[in-house]
Simulated assay, not measured.
Amino acid sequence: MAPSDLNTPNRPKALGLGVACQERIVFISVVIPTYNRQPILEKCLRAMEQQQFPDPTPVAGYEIIVVDDGSTDGTVAWLTAETAQFPHVRLVQQDHQGPAAARNLGVHRAQGDYIVFIDSDLVVLPDFLQCHAATLVEGQARLGQRVFTYGRVINTCNFDDPTSEPYKVTDFSQAYFATGNVAIAKHWLLQAGLFDTQFTLYGWEDLELGVRLKQLGLTLIKCPDAVGYHWHPPFSLAQVPKLIDQEIQRGRMGVLFYQKHPTWDVRLMIQMTWLHRVLWGVLTLGGQLNEKTLAPLLQWLIDRGKPQLALEVARIFLNWYNVQGVYAAYAEQQRG
């Protein structure tokens, strides 16, 4: 299927703002790649349609570009039938090529001066875009044009009321550029070269672009008031095989990341150091604490209503699989 774009509106004119805001008016394109996530995508889009802006505001308007990456769950048919409920949404389609290609397509189709990336399982608050825009304007006045903003992501498994989840220590992120909740001028993305579509498996395509953005001298500004609630289903043992596969894929993509940027910082990020090998080796007793031996403990925690704690315990052996995947892929790359 060739990429297509449905319901393309004209870019809105600037709102009636005061003179002081006219030089800082921004039109925002929210780019959301999606693949077989129709139920949570609906919550995501309904929240995005509820954005509110004070007067005056630096925001001239916004559009929501949903890039469907070849979904087979009826996402396209549903969204096409419900266009009246989502007036800001533009639906773009492509064959299944992964999130890097989907985000690139969204950026190319975007009419906005600024791009906001979120994932299709993120539910935001009504002041989400206003917070990003106001922080961008303030940051540019203080630091110049080479800035972008990164909002707060709170993980939740509460599908009925995702925004009720409080912020937790485990939600803290030190990522420089991650596409779960970020706002950046479109021209910086184009200058950096967009996402590398060689990252066809799980992980690292956004952080790799972040390395190139950092080389352009961009400064990250934290924007904790731009809150997004990242929904995922409650952890269960049935998810473990998929999570292990993701960690192995992330290991392979980590080696690709290191090939492109062979630095110590990247080695730390992808866990390709002796420290990580020893750490996860010790914590898993050389792999003996794994999905099989820890299954009774994980199920016990789940049965007692603590699926998030069970997931944190599972991350011990998941990190071990990731490190094993990194070194296996690196050895393969060295041989090849």
Rank of each mutant, 00 (worst) to 15 (best):
D5R: 14
L6R: 05
L15W: 12
Q22Y: 08
V26K: 05
V31N: 05
I32W: 09
R37C: 01
I40V: 15
E49T: 09
Q50F: 04
Q52F: 05
I65W: 03
D68Y: 02
D73A: 05
V76G: 00
E82Q: 14
Q85A: 15
F86D: 00
F86W: 08
P87V: 08
Q93A: 06
H108E: 13
A110F: 07
A110N: 11
A110W: 10
D119Q: 15
S120W: 04
D121P: 01
L122P: 00
L125G: 05
Q130S: 05
T135L: 11
T135V: 14
L136C: 09
Q140G: 13
Q140L: 09
R146V: 04
T149V: 13
G151V: 13
G151L: 12
I154Q: 04
T163K: 13
T163P: 05
S164W: 06
T170L: 04
A175Y: 10
G180P: 02
N181V: 11
A183R: 05
L190D: 09
Q191L: 09
E205V: 07
L209A: 03
L220D: 01
L220W: 03
I221C: 06
P224Q: 10
A226N: 01
V227N: 00
G228H: 04
H230G: 02
F235L: 07
S236H: 12
L237E: 11
V240F: 05
P241C: 07
D245I: 02
L256G: 03
K260G: 14
H261F: 15
T263L: 09
T263H: 12
V266N: 07
W274N: 06
L279A: 09
T284A: 08
L294G: 05
I302C: 12
R304M: 11
P307T: 06
Q308G: 12
Y321W: 14
G325Y: 06
A329P: 04
R335I: 08
